[in-house]
Amino acid sequence: SNGEASPTASMAELDHLAHVVSKSHHETCQYLKEELQPTRGERLPQAEVDGYQRKPRELMWQLCAVKITEAIQYVVEFAKRIDGFMELSQNDQIVLLKAGSLEVVFIRMCRLFDEQNNAVYFDGKFAGPDVFKALGCDDLIASVFDFAKSLCSLQLTEEELALFSAFVLLSADRSWLQDKLQVEKLQQKTQSALQHVLQKNQRDDGVLSELRCRVSALRSLCSRHTEKLSAFRAVHPDIVRMHFPPLYKELFGA
């Protein structure tokens, strides 16, 4: 009643929260798993892999910036539909999205990941890490693929993924938040709902702590993405200024 999270939140409240977050995730997930099912398992022909590898670095960066930006727009819509998010100040909404939207894109990537072929759905087909060679960030790409693989291995349901995404987005320890306490309450409630759903699904007790460990991996991926972007921008400032999506620059440009 006073907005406090668990233990006061009842099972019915947690079920309701899980339902709402799950529905928001479903409505904003960009691709339904079923849509991709027919192409899953298909390997990209070598000629197409070569085509990506031969692209000039600037063009490949631009393509990836566009794809990331598209995915982030869906994450913004997801955030808007999370209970309580739009009641936060606009400053805090922006702080949470700036820090967390790419993290959610990385989480969502595991839905579009083909574990057998180590490939992710990109530009209309399943692509392995070699497709991204022209970016000149092999280490970061390898880490992103490793992250997707490790998250896939937990075999989370869509509802669990939705709640984990909301939990990450509502991180109360982001710098520059005005109302940390309110974000903390929302995050705590989301964590309780996630815990509740994991229990309901008879998941191992360790899954929640596994997921908490993944949070630091996500942060590391995002800060490495920012470093790579800075390095790229230092060499190609005009490409970024003129050809990168404005939203991408707003989020990562500084």
Partner: peptide, 20 residues
């Protein structure tokens, strides 16, 4: 707000440019 113009707009719009 000026610095985050697009994000601001996306948050304000009830329907965003994304075709959901």
């Amino acid at each position: 707000k000026e610095k985050h113009k697009i994000l601001h707009q996306l948050l304000q719009n009830s329907a965003s440019p994304v075709d959901l």
